[in-house]
Structure formats: C-alpha cells, structure tokens
Write a protein that binds this DNA or RNA. Structure first.
Lengths: 226, 226
DNA sequence: CTTCTACTATTAGTATTTTCATAATTTTTA
DNA sequence: TAAAAATTATGAAAATACTAATAGTAGAAG
C-alpha cells in the first residue's frame, strides 16, 4: 500500500512517515505543492495525505488540480485550521476526508483504512495458501511449485486444500472422507490412498523435499521437515 | 440522489430530513437498526447517514452487517461520542466517514458531497471493462475484440460481464446461477453451459488466444494466459 | 406473422473418479 | 530376528460424471 505524504513541517512529516512505515505502508514524503502534483501525476499511490499549508501551491489547489487532471486517488486533507468553513472548502476541493491537527495517530490510521477499503474490496486480493515452495491458488484453482503451474482435478484440489489448511497435523482417513468426500468413512475402498498417490505424483515426485507424509496406522500429514 | 437517514431522535431526524430535502436530496428516515438493515438491503441509496445510538441494533453493528452482505453504499456515521477510539471503531466497522454531534449543517453537506463524489466517479470510470484485446462496453452493451464489434444478447452480456468482473478466478456454476440468473442452482438444466458455448462462438472462436476456459468439476475462468 | 431470445433436451465424446488386483512397505507376533 | 499380518502404494481397467455441441421449442419482441 503506497502513500504520498505532502507536509512541510519536518517534525510532522517524519512522525507520519515513521508511524506509517511501522504499519508497513510504503511512504513517500514531499514538502511542497509543486512536487506533490508532480509525484501524484507520475506515480501511483493508494492514498495521498495532503497538508493544506504548504509552499508554492497550497493543498486545496493541489487537490483541485489533481482532480481536474482526472486523478482519483483518495485524498486525506490535513490542517491546523478546524473551522467548519475550512473543512467544507477542503472537501469540496476534492478531498475525500479531512483531519484537524493535532490528531491521534490511530484516528489517522482508521481514516486511511476507510479510504483504502473500497479500493481493496474491489481488488479482491488473491487467496493463496502457502507451504514451503508450494502455493495453492484458491482463485485460479491451481497449484504452483518451483515456478511451475500444476493443474489438479477438482477432487485432487479439494484434498490438497483440506490437507494444507490442516498442515502440521495428522489427518485420519475418516476425517478426509468426511471433509473432502463428505461421506462417512468406508473401509472397503482405497480412494483416498489413490488420491494421495495422484497428488504425490503431481506435487512431490520431482522435488527433493516431500510435503506429503504417511503416518502408518494414523493417516497423512502435510509438512516440510522430515 | 437518495439518502437513508437512520436516527431515532425526532428533532435531529426532522432537522436533517428538512435540510437535505431543501438541497433536493430524496430522503428516507428510519428510526432503528432493524429497519435500517431492512431498507438498506431492499432499496438503493446513494448514502446512508447512520446514527450510532439507535434502538435494537446499534449503528456499528448495522454497518458491519451491511458490509458483510456486500452492500457498499457509503456510510456517514453520526454520533455524540467524540473520542478517537469511537471514531476508530466506527470507521473500522465499515463507515466511510464519521461526524460528531453537534455539527454544522454545511459540514455535513460537504462530507456528503465528498462521499457521493467518490462513488459516482467510480461509476464513470468503470464503463468499460478490458481484458487483453477484448472490451466490454457497459454503456453501449456491446463487446469489441480485435477491432470488431460483437453484439450480444442480454443474457450473454450479463454472463460475460460477471465473468469479466471476476476474471482470473474460477467461478462455479452455482455462483453464475446465483449472480447472473439470480436463482439458486438447479442441476437439471444446462443453460449455463449453453451460454458459455454461445459466448465462445462469438468472442473466442475466431481468435487464437482463448479467454474462456473450463475447469472441469469446478466451473469456468476468464483469463488470457494458458 | 416473422424474427429473435432464452431456454430445454439429447447426444457423443472426454475427463475424472472409483474399483480392483497386486506390489511394496511397515508393524506385529512368535 | 524372521515370518505373518496389517497397512499402504501403484498401475490399469471400469464406471461414472462432466462438458461441448447441436437441434429444437416456447414465448417475447418487433
């Protein structure tokens, strides 16, 4: 998540930068309106934190001009001026939110979350379960290992997903039968064994570190260490 | 522009209603969380103004539940509690903005403008969905690929739109049935398969790179790479 | 009335899942 | 420790499930 901070007071700027980086945002700081426009125009940011009182071009003007250029990055306006009129002007200039200094850092964080939420909602982050060098991609329904993409059938995928969600834990055949085949366990069949075999061929065979292990008399376990 | 106001204090409610109607918003007022959920679920609103302290289900819970249901209508949270923690909780519950009572009406208006702007801006930029050399034009309801304009029927278009909005993700027939046909999945029909076939004929057949892919036993996925 | 759309029915072909027989391995028993 | 028993692995065949493709029908739209 990339953030552009536009703030000329060094104290505030470094305080923000540090705090946000601790939350693992990628932070860029600029000190005046001129650079703010330039950076926002040339780079992509998830949010812009924009102080109103900055050199050259003030924050309101920066917001207005960015919007005119069609840049829709959410803007959180920051200022020492707390009157309603100031807020109204700021919001109408194109800001999406407005925060009055001094503010508590956790409120800033909450407002940032609110601003970026809509964005991340749409960009549904891809759901992936990882173990060692193996990736199970729940959206694309494929597995990747060592750079290679491996196709699995529906049952194979279902079985591997269940095992991965329960990695480092021995899973009995009865449990697998119930959760993956959703039926009570039937001793007269060895489908599970067969599918374990299928999985091994596809995801373990050509790799030195095996991840599927048999626990004789107990079931199977998925893990990396031997 | 339609607004839902959720506020149980009659004075505040009627003050808001009157003021907003003067600004030519269409206003609906409900007095408790139960009705709020019901109305927001069944009707379309551009913004919801949501008081925190309301009967039955409090505002925070209403916001949370609406978001869980996938309703993304901007929410402006309203409350007498002004502490930072309250704001943080409110914003994290799913609110897009937070206003502390008492507030000036023009600040409310400004924040409403900011909230609806963001929303309507998004609407306008999403008028064309692209993937590779395929364009889905939501205004003209046509598809273009390789310079050619392809006409689709309503159902074909609806299906392709849904798939494109979920590109790079395997979509099950159940999901398609629910979202495109809005009915629960019925195994006794193969409409979906047939429509996939229609789409393939129209948008994939004469092009080397296919974008509709079958994942046997799982559903369909739209993507370019093989 | 004709054309178009949404859908159903059916088929053949293919991919997947399961069963089964046998081999290999591990555990138990003597 | 060696043989027997139990458990698991594997390959191939059989059964089943799934999908593509096409033709046909009812009803809406023009």
């Amino acid at each position: 998540m990339k953030i552009l901070i536009v703030e000329d007071e060094p104290k505030v700027a470094s305080f923000l930068k540090q705090g946000l980086e601790e939350q693992s945002y990628e932070v860029t700081v600029v000190f005046d309106g001129y650079f703010a426009k330039k950076m926002a125009g040339e780079n992509y940011y998830d949010v812009i934190i924009l102080d109103v009182l900055i050199p050259y071009i003030n924050g309101l003007e920066v917001a207005k001009q960015l919007r005119n250029e069609g840049i829709k990055t959410p803007i959180l306006m920051l200022t020492a001026l707390g009157s309603t009129d100031d807020k109204v002007v700021g919001l109408d200039a194109g800001a999406d939110d407005y925060l009055v200094k001094p503010f508590e850092f956790k409120e800033l964080l909450a407002r940032l979350r609110a601003l970026t939420k809509r964005f991340t909602d749409n960009m549904h982050e891809q759901r992936v379960i990882k173990l060692h060098d193996l990736e199970l991609d729940l959206d694309r329904k494929v597995v990747r290992r060592g750079g290679k993409t491996i196709d699995l059938t529906a049952k194979e995928f279902g079985l591997l997903e269940y095992l991965l969600r329960n990695k480092n834990r021995v899973i009995s055949r009865a449990e697998i039968s119930e959760k993956v085949w959703d039926s009570s366990f039937d001793t007269s069949t060895n489908v599970i064994d067969v599918y374990i075999n299928f999985l091994r061929k596809k995801i373990d065979k050509e790799f030195p570190t095996k991840i599927i292990h048999t626990m004789v008399g107990m079931g199977y376990i998925i893990k990396t260490e031997d």
